[in-house]
Design a protein around this nucleic acid. Structure first.
Lengths: 336, 336
DNA sequence: TTGAAAGCGATACCAT
DNA sequence: ATGGTATCGCTTTCAA
């Protein structure tokens, strides 16, 4: 069922059929006949052919590691809102371990399928960065990339965010602070570990490997496993920590669940902080003290930058940084 | 940067270039020259042109109302896992109120962009169903569609699920049961309202409009607003309800948060149940009694059905139904 | 093995 | 306003 069929049925040329359907100049008569024919035949234009001819797809791809993470959902909503009804349609691809690497993605999608790409990978790869450098379509990275890569990016120092959380706990008098990190082979995992170590150093607290653990993923499920492992380490009569810094809100929820399940009080026995400042975390009981990574703002900004690059392909590379922001809630004891 | 350029650079014909890159018959010499040229020029094939020629995109689209809902995330993961590494790439489009209607989507994506569509709309529309009937690409609906529409579907009776939750509360001796529903203009909203009413009727409990409220969305944020409204209705000294049935886990979390925030104990003063059986709900404190809608299984099944239709376009329409399953947890008092 | 050329389906230019 | 036709970038017959 192609435009040729519709044109034949309506008794006009394909050119006229095309015009009639895309509402260019066409007589009322032709327009009606063509639209009728299209309806009768159940004609649906082939977007692939149209894109090929037009050289644009009006599609933007948002590629994330795990769309189950509320952080990315917040970004997505902001991106969609920014493009709005008249902008390109945005679709999401997950590029986690299971579902194809970011490189696959950049390959697959590169040209034709989407006009632009917003990419938020958690694992750095030199291959990916190489591909990004010679990217076939406009791209904005939300996250960190090497300075050498010429690509627009929106970043935030999540190591600093972790440090802010840890410092807040220290300021409240907590001294034995545990850390539940995400996977250490990820960029956020690495950065957050450094941020945590740094904050202890500044406070003059000795780092203790027994108090640090990496969850297998930035998910609740992995967090529960990690938290249990943390609580079961060593032989103690008294809990060897009085606070837990979690690498995001999902891990914080898991930590609180496990702590409470083992009979400890949060925040009295163990204070807990998260990262991402999710709505879910603020509704959790106790509500979770969290450092915002400004996901929505970063998403919106990324969309704006992509749009700007569509307009001006030659504009200089732009790298924007946001500042993390602490939101004190009940899980660390509430406002000071 | 097209294949023509690569071919020129390598000093071969486009046909040879194409073969060299798609690994058909080509001499070692040619293959090497072409691949070198491609790398040098930063050539990336245009997927649009390829799809047009091949008549397939190896893409499947998953269209949902709100990917922020853990239920859809569970489906997505199952879909991706089912297609696996060798299957089509799946991308997600949200078709909520803000981001284009499902009809837009079916239009836009219909042909070319994706080989198949898995659609999980929450608002029924005759226009959508009409489009579905004459769908340009294989489609599976997760949710409910009129019997008259000839389309593969995977459904579950969420009204029954709500009834199971309410009946469980009644079995535990709760009698004044409130209901926080999702938006009433959605299909799940309608169905769940009927299921709730039905369960009261069976138990011989009079329905009380003061105890029912619709949240503006199936989200935590909307749930908090609705829960506050519910608690503030009427003038009472004693709480006019001893249980809340929530239309999903997000609304249940919101309800518990608000109840506890107002000084009530869950489940002692108010028992609460959810729907969807999310991981988040099981980690919430108290853990949320919930009726599983088998999101992962439905997602996997939908993917299988789509694959089957790819294989056998003429196979008869298949409609599969799943059964909801109650998971008793702390928010209603735990196991009986 | 290689190259020339047809064609996927739509759009837009150029005549009429 | 309408029709014929080249074209988007790629894959694939068909000959050589």
């Amino acid at each position: 069922m192609t435009l040729v069929d519709v044109a034949a049925q309506a008794g006009v040329s394909v050119s006229s059929a095309s015009r009639a359907l895309t509402d260019k100049s066409a007589s009322v008569d032709v327009r009606e006949r063509v639209q009728l024919a299209a309806r009768e035949l159940g004609y649906v234009p082939d977007s692939t052919a149209r894109s090929l001819k037009l050289g644009a797809s009006r599609q933007v791809l948002f590629a994330v590691d795990d769309i189950g993470n509320p952080n990315y959902v917040a970004m997505l909503r902001a991106i969609e809102r920014t493009f709005g009804y008249t902008g390109p349609r945005v679709s999401v691809a997950t590029v986690g371990r299971d579902s194809g690497t970011p490189v696959d993605l950049v390959e697959a999608v590169s040209r034709g399928r989407a006009d632009g790409l917003i990419l938020s990978p958690i694992r750095r790869s030199s291959l990916l960065e190489e591909r990004l450098s010679s990217s076939a379509i406009p791209t904005v990275v939300i996250g960190s990339v090497s300075e050498s890569v010429q690509v627009d990016s929106v970043r935030i120092d999540s190591g600093k965010a972790i440090a802010i959380a840890a410092e807040h706990l220290i300021a409240r008098g907590r001294r034995r602070i545990a850390f539940i990190n995400g996977p250490s082979d990820t960029n956020p995992g690495e950065v957050r570990a450094r941020g945590f170590a740094q904050s202890l150093r500044v406070a003059g607290i000795a780092a203790d490997p027994m108090l640090e653990i990496s969850a297998a993923d930035f998910t609740v499920g992995a967090g529960v496993v990690a938290a249990h492992a943390l609580f079961e380490r060593g032989n103690y009569t008294e809990l060897p920590f009085d606070a837990i810094v979690a690498a995001n809100d999902l891990l914080a929820m898991a930590a609180i669940n496990v702590a409470v399940g083992r009979g400890f009080r949060v925040p009295d026995d163990v204070a807990v902080t998260g990262l991402d400042d999710t709505e879910l975390g603020s509704v959790f009981i106790p509500s979770i003290t969290s450092v915002s990574l400004r996901a929505a703002e970063r998403g919106a900004r990324a969309a704006q930058m992509l749009e700007a690059r569509f307009q001006h392909p030659q504009r200089p590379i732009e790298r924007v940084a946001f500042e993390p922001e602490l939101h004190v809630r009940a899980s660390c004891g509430g406002a000071l």
